[in-house]
Simulated assay, not measured.
Amino acid sequence: MYIGGVRQKRVALMVFLAPAVISLVVFFLFPILMSAVLSLLEYDPLRPAADITFVGLANYKEYFQYQDLKDQYLHVLYYLVMYIPLILLTSMIQAVLLNRVFAAKTLYKVLFYLPVISSWVAVALIWRWLLHGESGLINIALGAIGIKGPSWMHNKIWAMPGVVMAAVWKDTGYYALILLAALKSIDATYYEAARIDGASRLQQFSRITVPLVSPTIFLLLVVNVIAGFQVFESIYIMTEGGPAGATRVPVEQIYRNAFTYYKMGYASAIAWVLGFVILIATVIQFRLEKKWVNYEN
């Protein structure tokens, strides 16, 4: 379609951009602004508007004095320390396998991606059954080799590893596809030259594959750290923050305070603190990027 004239082009540009701009303002910028305002208020949506009280930084002060604040972020770090190495390892293995030619490859692609498109409710139910202390398949398998499995979801030590296993199983397929795209972009001549020089497959992987996909690995690392700090669905469905608060994390507390106790101002303050922590973690990662990420010229 031809659009003539500067005025008509400007009008067309505004018309085409309007849906995206309106969505950005209504669903992103406005909620951020409102959460910042709410964090300074004592606001209960079930009470009259006349009861809204400006409390300044009192919500933040209350949260910093919360006795479980440190534990919440330690639980997140515990989750990240287990989840990130496992998700990067399993995703890379999947990607390497998919980068090869073998029988029934299409069927394999479908099967390994099924967990990604499954809802967390379904995944949680499956894994709660698998991790059941008495009749779970994992404990049955451990018992077959003489190991007594723990009561995963009811044990303060093993509840978070159980959540991590479920999350890795669900997410691996998605990140494997991202890594597969990075593997496909590597020039095959690098491997041919390495084979001529007598490099083994392990040397080719460590000296060629890993350095050339390191930008993608860095992307996955940043994305997963951000997502890890915001972990919620898996924990809420599988453990509800238990047992005895062993899997309680910041977003779960935001949900409870906002939609169980209706302390919207306090919940908004928690969200802003969490956002600031995520920002610091992301900045640190970008600061360290140049030390190990290789960008091909």
Rank of each mutant, 00 (worst) to 15 (best):
M1R: 15
Q8A: 09
V11H: 13
A12M: 14
A12R: 14
A20P: 00
V21Q: 10
V21E: 04
V21W: 05
V25D: 10
V26T: 11
V26P: 08
I32S: 10
L33D: 00
V37S: 11
V37F: 01
L38R: 15
S39G: 05
L41F: 07
A50Y: 03
D51C: 08
F54N: 06
V55Y: 02
Y60E: 09
K61N: 12
D71W: 02
Q72Y: 15
Y79E: 01
L80E: 12
P85V: 14
L88R: 11
L88D: 00
L89W: 06
T90R: 08
M92H: 10
L97C: 08
N99M: 13
N99K: 12
F102L: 06
Y108H: 07
Y108S: 13
V110K: 13
L111H: 11
F112C: 09
F112R: 09
Y113H: 09
P115R: 05
W120V: 02
A124W: 01
G133P: 09
I140N: 07
A141L: 15
L142P: 03
I147Y: 06
K148G: 00
G149S: 02
P150S: 08
W152A: 04
W152I: 03
M153I: 04
I157N: 11
P161W: 00
V164R: 01
M165H: 13
M165N: 14
V168P: 10
V168G: 07
W169P: 06
D171F: 12
T172Y: 00
G173M: 01
G173Y: 04
G173S: 03
Y174I: 10
A181P: 15
L183N: 02
K184L: 13
D187H: 12
E192C: 07
E192W: 05
E192K: 10
A193Y: 04
A194G: 07
D197T: 06
G198K: 06
S200V: 02
S200I: 03
R201H: 13
R201Q: 11
L202T: 10
Q203L: 00
F205Q: 07
S206P: 00
V210Q: 00
P211I: 05
L212K: 04
P215R: 08
T216L: 01
I217K: 12
I217E: 05
F218V: 05
V222C: 10
V225Q: 02
F229Q: 05
M238T: 09
M238L: 02
T239I: 03
T239N: 02
E240N: 12
G241S: 03
G241R: 03
A244V: 04
P250R: 03
V251D: 04
R256T: 00
T260Y: 15
Y262P: 14
Y262I: 13
G265A: 03
A267G: 04
S268D: 05
S268L: 10
S268R: 09
A271M: 11
W272H: 13
L274K: 00
F276T: 15
F276V: 15
I278C: 12
I284R: 00
E289W: 02
K291R: 15
K291S: 14
W292Q: 12
N294Q: 15
N294I: 15
Y295G: 07
E296N: 03
N297R: 09
